[in-house]
Structures are given as structure tokens and as C-alpha cells.
Computed example of a mutant assay.
Amino acid sequence: MTLSTPLLAAAPLLAGLVGPALLGAAPGRQQAAPPAVAPAHTVQRSDIVEHVAARTAADQQRVLDYWTPERMAKALPIGLLDIVTNGDDLLSGLTGRADLSTTPDLSSRKADLSVPRRLMGSHHLSAARPDASTIGSRWITGGLVARTTGRVFLTVAGADFVCSASTVKSANRDVVVTAGHCVKDGAGEWAANWTFVPGYGTAGEHPYGQYTARRMFVAGPWSRSGDDNYDVGMVALATSRGKHVADAVGTQEIAFNPGRGGQAFGFGYPADPPYDGGDLVYCAGRLKDDPYGQTRDQGLGCDMTAGSSGGPWMTGFDANTGKGTITSLSSFKYSDDRRTMYGPYFGDSVKALFNTAQHA
């Protein structure tokens, strides 16, 4: 696989580093025991890999109980671990470390990099009215996007992480779309304690409820090798307070095989400085192809940081209503261009993924 640096964020285990939580798979490293959630199982359908998460009401309540306000507050970004994974699990080298209080010596690994290194950048956050071009501003207009976009809380190998996601219009009224690395650790394990909080508030409010995952789906190439072209996850949620997520907050449209280029708006909850994870942030501009040719992804000028992974990119976006059509999401950055975010192209494989999830 190519070197992947997801924009995931985790507990504050490594202080002082800039970038997303990553990514290292050191051979033979022991993983921490997963949290005490009822056993789940995985099945494969065509080239879609499925994971059954919180199946029963008791399982779902156990997940909800896990995410105390204190635990959510501690699921903050850590620094970049710039390690080539070669298709192994992306996070075990991080979460399996016996002592995560110091920065590992990666100098010997950096010489092995054969593609441009990827990491997140940081720039000044400023509030602004909706504009057709911005690399990162706080969304202050409200509208549908302020309800349909939310934060994701998850656990991988004993460490708590945060991502972003969005509801999408679906047959079962339960589907959210996010990054593949926010659902499954590449070729490694599935996320546990997966919970979506739409319309997440600055003070940690969850006005529309908290929705646990009941079934998760990723494409085979992501599950087998963490292929960045397939860094997409679809999650079918359980109801919250007796409501499907679509009925509680509404949905955005989703489309596949769109024309390349054009104008897009990207949204998410970045949590690395200068952001703190409490605000919905947006980027807007023209899409461009990956200049390195490493992926089929397209780039969007954007300074969002760790925690924004999985946040929706919309075309045909109406800033007055907050409605648009999701055609990609936040996935990674290159280290020599920290102002450009890259997102996977929503082709036939993503369409199949969505169709499976919406009938789950």
C-alpha cells in the first residue's frame, strides 16, 4: 500500500507533536486487549467486508455507558508517527506501545520511505461567513449540515480516538459515511465502542442523541491492505431514543462517479491545534488531482487537522440551506503540501458499499 496518514485523533499520548494520530505497524508488536464489549463477527460479501458491532440493546447500552463525558474529553489528537506500514494494521505500533509518554525514534524508518510522507498541518482558525474559497473557517451559518455532520468516538487496541462523519439519505434511515480508517485499522482490527454524535456542541453537547454502530462496512482493498483509494467506511447505526438518525437530524444526498474537479465544500471536527474539536469547520474551493499520482484521490485546499477524518465533501452545496451532495471525504495530506486535503473518489466500489449498508 502507499504510506497512509489518516487524520484520526486519539487520546493525548504523545505531547508536542503536530499531525494526525498514525499509523505504525511494528512487526510482532502485541496489541492491547479490546474493551469489554460483546463479541462481534465479520463476514465477507463480494468485495465488501462487514463487521457486526453492537447487536443487542445491552451491547448498545454498554457502548453508550463507555463514552462518559470525561472519556470523550480525553479522546484528543496525538502526534504523527511517521512509519511505513506495508499493508499491516495502521495503529498497533502506536496503541500497543508499553510507554506512550515519549516520542519514538523514527529516524531509521524515515530513510525507508519511498513515497512523499503525509501528515496534517496547522493554521490559524478564523470565523467567517460562508465563502466559495477558504482553507479553514468555523461554520457559523447553521442549516442542515450543522445537524447531519458529527463527531465519531471509537476505540482501537485500547486507545480512544475521534473522527468525523455525516448522515446520508438511505433506505434504512441509519447510514453514515466516514473514512475507512475510522472504522477499520487497515488490515488490522475493527473499531470498537463506535458512536456517532450528530451536531456535536462546543461544550460537548449531543442535542440529537448518540448513535452506536450496529453494522460496519469497508471495501475489500481497504480491509486487506489499507489502500488509500478505498479509504471509505459506511456504518449502519442503531436507533437513539427510539429514532433513526435520519429522522432526528435529516440527511445529505450522496452520489457516485461524479465528474472530476469542480467546486466542493468539506466539513469536519478538527481537533489538533489551532482547533479543539468543539467546532464544525469547513473548507471550500476547487478540486484537483493527486499531483504525485499515488492515488485516484482529489485534493481540496484545507488546513483542517486531526479529527477531521471522514468529514463529508459536498458538491452542489447551498450555503443558505446547508444542503449538498456528498461525493468524497477527508482522508490524508502530504507533508510537502499541508494546505491540501485529499479525499477518495466515490466510484462503483463506494456505490456498492453504500447499497449494502443501506439495506443492512
Rank of each mutant, 00 (worst) to 15 (best):
T95L: 07
L8D: 04
V49E: 09
P312I: 09
R129C: 10
I83L: 13
L76T: 15
D336S: 15
A38L: 14
V84F: 10
R97L: 15
D82W: 09
G311F: 03
D231W: 06
Y269C: 03
E189R: 11
P344I: 12
T102N: 15
S122C: 08
L300Y: 07
H41E: 13
D131K: 12
L13T: 15
S164E: 08
A219H: 05
D99A: 06
T56C: 06
R173P: 01
T315F: 01
R147T: 03
A9Q: 07
A238E: 10
A165P: 01
A10P: 04
T2S: 13
A53K: 02
L17G: 05
R338Y: 11
G242Q: 00
S4F: 15
S114I: 08
W190C: 06
W194N: 01
S137E: 08
T195G: 00
R55V: 01
A213M: 04
R147V: 00
G79S: 15
V52L: 08
F256P: 01
A11I: 06
A165Q: 00
A165R: 01
T95A: 15
A127W: 10
G142P: 06
D185H: 02
D88N: 12
G301C: 09
P198W: 06
A159E: 07
S114G: 12
D290Y: 10
R118Q: 13
D279K: 14
L280A: 03
G158E: 01
L125P: 12
G322D: 05
V218F: 08
V115Y: 07
L237Q: 03
T340G: 08
Q30M: 13
Q61H: 09
K351A: 07
Y66Q: 04
Q44R: 10
G204D: 08
P274T: 14
A165T: 01
Q263T: 06
D89N: 14
S126H: 14
S126Y: 13
S122T: 12
S349Y: 10
H41S: 13
R71S: 01
R62K: 12
A165D: 00
V249N: 03
S331Y: 02
H124C: 04
S101C: 04
S164C: 07
D228G: 05
G268Y: 03
G347W: 03
T56G: 05
V245Q: 05
A53P: 00
F267E: 06
Q210T: 14
A171N: 11
L154S: 14
Y334C: 05
V152D: 00
G87T: 04
L94N: 07
S225Y: 07
R215T: 05
T5S: 14
A21K: 05
G87L: 03
S122H: 10
L329N: 06
A159L: 13
D348I: 03
S137F: 02
A132E: 08
N229H: 01
T102A: 15
G347L: 09
R29M: 14
F267Y: 11
G96Y: 05
D297L: 02
S349L: 04
Y230T: 03
P20D: 13
R62E: 06
Y269D: 01
G266S: 14
G268A: 11
T239L: 05
A21T: 15
L94K: 03
V43K: 04
G285E: 12
A73C: 04
S137I: 02
T305R: 09
H123V: 03
P291S: 08
L80W: 11
P274S: 15
T327W: 01
K323F: 10
R138Y: 02
V156R: 14
V49A: 00
V156W: 14
S101A: 15
E189M: 04
